[in-house]
């Protein structure tokens, strides 16, 4: 049988079928968890934030009016949850913060590849929270510039420029600073 789309699932949820939440959790838990993990570098906080996202999806399900994709709506909630988290931590989105660099990722990667991953993680940490967030939304969540612009309340062009600038800074960091 063909898998139902997110939109079909969401209609069922809005009609009272809460079992759908489990399916949405299975579909999105890994990607959203990793988004938070990259932004916070804390497994504990990433888990808490993931729970908050699904609480909000359940709580505000009626506010999704069917305009746009469920996926972007969920990622938008994720972005808002992250912003609230930074606010609680009294972090300035335009600043660079040193985060714990001890995260270990298992997988079948060569030593060289693992080293590349570590360097890239380290370099990502040298971006401001805003840039890092937008680069992560674009390359991990695979959000379009239009979706990022909506989530961040900026123009599509500003979203494009911001992601490009982040990428450029990342490139410069990896190339010049010997990270």
């Amino acid at each position: 049988m063909k898998h139902p789309t997110d939109e079909q699932l969401f209609r069922r949820l809005q009609q009272g079928d809460t079992a759908v939440m489990g399916t949405l959790f299975e579909r999105y838990k890994t990607i959203i968890y990793n988004y938070f993990l990259r932004m916070t570098h804390s497994e504990e906080d990433a888990g808490d934030l993931l729970m908050t996202v699904f609480e909000r999806i359940h709580k505000y399900q009626k506010s999704f009016k069917g305009k746009g994709k469920v996926r972007s709506w969920i990622f938008q909630i994720g972005n808002n949850v992250l912003k609230d988290y930074w606010r609680q931590q009294k972090r300035d989105m335009d600043q660079v913060y040193e985060l714990n660099n001890s995260l270990e990722f298992s997988g079948d990667f060569s030593e060289e590849k693992q080293q590349d991953h570590k360097m890239l993680y380290k370099a990502l940490n040298y971006l401001s929270l805003t840039e890092k967030n937008r680069v992560t939304m674009y390359y991990l969540l695979e959000m379009s510039y239009a979706e990022i612009s909506e989530a961040e309340g900026i123009s599509i062009n500003a979203a494009r420029i911001s992601v490009h600038r982040g990428l450029k800074n990342l490139h410069k960091l990896l190339k010049n600073s010997g990270i």
Binding site: K29, Y33, L37, G47, L50, F105, H117, Y139
Partner: peptide
């Protein structure tokens, strides 16, 4: 190459503790 690297950064699985918290909520 950098873009490829960004796309291929490894992902971590959600822990069993988080899954169980979701089940309780569900």
């Amino acid at each position: 190459e950098l873009v490829e690297q960004l796309k291929q950064l490894p992902k971590k699985e959600v822990s069993s503790a988080v899954n169980q918290r979701f089940e309780a909520m569900e």
